[in-house]
Amino acid sequence: MSTFLQQLVNGLSVGSIYALIALGYTMVYGTLGLINFAHGEVFMIGCYIGLYAAFWLGYDALAAASFSPMSATLVLLLAMAGAAIVGMLIERLAYRPLRGAPRLAPLITAIGVSLLLQNIAVLAFSANPRKFPSIITEHRLEFAGVTITNIKIFIFAVSILLMLALEFFVKKTWTGRAMRAISFNLPAAKLMGVPADRVISLTFAIGSALAAAGGILFGLDQTKLEPLMGNMIGLKAFIAAVLGGIGNIRGAAIGGLLIGVAELMTAGYISSGYRDAITFVILIVILLFRPQGLLGVVRQEKV
């Protein structure tokens, strides 16, 4: 029982990071019908921006405990802002010129952008793994044989908060509604006066900022960064988006949490060697039995 609870807690924490990244895949797919393979790299870049921001703000590994919560928050915000700009640049430079082109062209471009960013990161940050600064000092709490750290609680809380903020934004604001309109029918949204290019750009910005938030949370938990880290995590987050129903925001959140929990249950009850494999098993099962995902609907014909 305590193994179960322990893995559940850890799974929810990892899963909420997947969920944050999955949101970016799903939002971009929802508006453009494009799988943004460079999204995992935006996550990675967000991580590095956080690392540099921490040092810039005076982080000192020997006196980590003196790094203020205010500064830690600033690290998060700077990483989100930096990644938002990167995401918007990717859209502007790589995808927008291909709007209206056959679907294969932006897909191949996305893979190209992903490789390009990985290589730029190797050049800029070096291929050696770096340690993410401990901008939050870890405290352990014990409950009925289950260890919870303040960092895991923080990860879960920040993720949930960001997801709720996104839900509110998409449901209640004009821009959010414009996003939904674009995702259902782009020409019709334009006819309503929606500046589609601007809204699409904003979609990339928000998705990227959320991925960067995921990056910082990941760094807090795993502490190791390297330029290729976006590969596997990006893939898992993408699978989370597919599991929830790609294009569906709540689906991405649920998909991320489910995959995180499934991974840690596998690690806890079978073997940590199968931890990564379970995600792909889930992908195969969902593609076989419910290709539209848990919350997805079969997409209607556009006019």
Partner: peptide, 11 residues
């Protein structure tokens, strides 16, 4: 008002 109406079915 486009041909086929183009209602936002998700709204």
């Amino acid at each position: 008002v486009p041909e086929g109406r183009a209602i936002f079915g998700n709204m």
